[in-house]
Amino acid sequence: MPMQAAQWSKALLADALAPVYLLVGEELLVLEAADAIRRRATTLGYAEREVLEAGPQFDWDNLARAAAGMSLFASRRLLDLRLPGGRAGKDGGAAIQAFCADPPPDVSLLITATEWSSKHESAWSKSVDQLGVQVVFQAPRPNEWGRWITARLASHGLSASSEAAALLAERVEGNLLAAAQEVDKLAILHQGGRIDRAEMERLVADSARYDAFKLTDAAFAGDAARALKVLAGLHAEGEELIGLMGWLVNQLQLVLRLASAEDFASQARAERLWPAREQLFRQALRRAPRQHWLGCLARAGRIDRMAKGRESGEPWREAERLIAAMALPRGSLSAP
C-alpha cells in the first residue's frame, strides 16, 4: 500500500535508502520530495547519480545498463528516472519490473511522475510498492490548508497563529505553488517571532516591495490577469516605474541564466532558489525558450530608458505589454 505523505519525512530518516522509490502526484511536492531523497542519498554515501529522462524515444534498455553498470568510485549509486507523463508503457513496465525482481546491491532507483491518477497504476507500480516505497502527494483539502501552511512556515523557521495561517490560506485560494511562494516571501520579509493575524495582514498588504514579488511571480506563472491587475494597482498608487523595472530586469536576467545553464538544478542551487521559486522558473522555461526571455529583457531595458526620459514612449503602456508577453509567450514580442 502506498505510504501516506505524512509518513514521508520519517521514512527519510532510515539508515539506508530503499531499493526503489515511486514519488507521484502534485508537481511541486514531488520535486521537493525527490530533492530530499537526493540530499539523503548524498548523506548516506551515494556518490553517483545518473538521470534517465523517459521521454517518447527513451530506450528502456538504458535502465538495465545503468543498473548493471560499475561504479567509478566503488560507491552507492542513485538512478534518477523521470516519467513526464506518468506512463511507462509496455517496455518501460517490463524494465521496471525486471529491476524490482532483482535489484542490484548498492543501487537505488528513484522514479518521479507529476501526472498521476488511479488510471496510471499498473503491474510495474505494484512491483515498486511491494519492494520499496510509493508515495502519492496531493494538494491539501480545503479544511487542511491552515495546517499545511503552518507546517510550511515551520520548515522556514517561522510560526503563525491559526488566524494568520487561515488568512494566508484564503489569499492563495487553493493554489499550491502560490502558497509555497508566499511562504518563501514571508521568510524574507519577516524578521522572526510569531506571526499573528495583524502582522500577516501587514506582510501581505499591497506594499511596493511585496507587490513586485507578486507581479513577477504571476507573470512567470502565466497568470496574465493577476499580473496585469497588480501592475495596474501599482500604477494607481503612484509607484515609481524605475524601481519596478529594476526588479523586472533582475528577474529576467535570472531566468536567462537558468535557461543558459547546462544543468538547471545546479544553477538553481547556485542562485539559492527555494523549491517553490525553482518550480516557478521551470514552468516559465517550459512555456517559452531562451530567445523569448532575451526579447523580454531587451524590451525591459527600453521601458527603463522611457521611464528615465532617455527614450520617447509611454512606459506604463509598454510595461503592460511586457507583462502580458511574459505571461502569455505565444503572443510573441515584436522587435523593440
Rank of each mutant, 00 (worst) to 15 (best):
A5P: 08
H120A: 03
A47C: 00
S108M: 07
L254A: 08
V204K: 10
E237K: 15
S334G: 13
N143K: 14
Y210I: 05
L83A: 07
S118P: 01
A327N: 14
R305T: 09
P275D: 13
V249Q: 10
A165P: 09
G69D: 06
A180S: 12
R269Y: 05
R82M: 04
Q97N: 12
S75T: 14
P289V: 03
H235R: 08
S207H: 08
A95Q: 07
R171S: 07
R269C: 05
Q4T: 01
A288S: 09
G309C: 01
G309L: 02
P336I: 05
G192V: 04
P105F: 05
G246K: 13
L241H: 03
A327S: 11
G93R: 15
L297M: 12
F99I: 02
A307S: 05
I242Q: 13
L280W: 12
R40K: 11
A335K: 13
G132Y: 04
R317Q: 02
D80V: 14
A5C: 10
A307I: 00
V30A: 06
A67N: 06
W60P: 09
I188K: 02
W274G: 13
A54N: 08
L252P: 07
A219V: 08
V24P: 00
L52G: 12
G85E: 11
I188E: 04
S159T: 08
L110D: 03
N143E: 01
Q191A: 06
E163C: 03
L28F: 13
S207W: 09
S118Y: 05
M200R: 02
R290Y: 05
L228S: 13
P56Y: 09
A34C: 12
T42E: 12
D80F: 14
A98Q: 15
S312M: 00
A14Y: 06
S159H: 07
D59Y: 14
G246C: 14
R286S: 08
L28C: 09
L234M: 12
R38V: 02
I111G: 00
L328P: 05
A324G: 03
S159R: 10
H120C: 03
G192P: 02
G243K: 10
R76Y: 04
I242V: 14
D211V: 02
T114L: 01
R286L: 13
A224T: 15
E318I: 02
A94M: 04
Q191K: 10
I323V: 14
D196T: 04
W8H: 08
W8N: 07
L231H: 06
E271K: 15
R39S: 15
G92T: 07
L52D: 10
D184Y: 11
I37H: 02
E240A: 09
H190W: 11
L215Q: 11
A6G: 00
R141P: 07
E201V: 11
L168W: 05
L252T: 12
E240W: 02
M70Y: 14
S266W: 04
S125T: 15
D263V: 00
P142Y: 00
G233Y: 06
V183M: 12
Q291F: 04
D223P: 01
D223E: 15
A68M: 06
A98N: 12
P104E: 14
A66G: 08
L109Q: 04
L158E: 10
E278S: 14
A198M: 02
P84G: 07
K126N: 09
L52H: 14
E314N: 05
A227L: 06
Q57W: 12
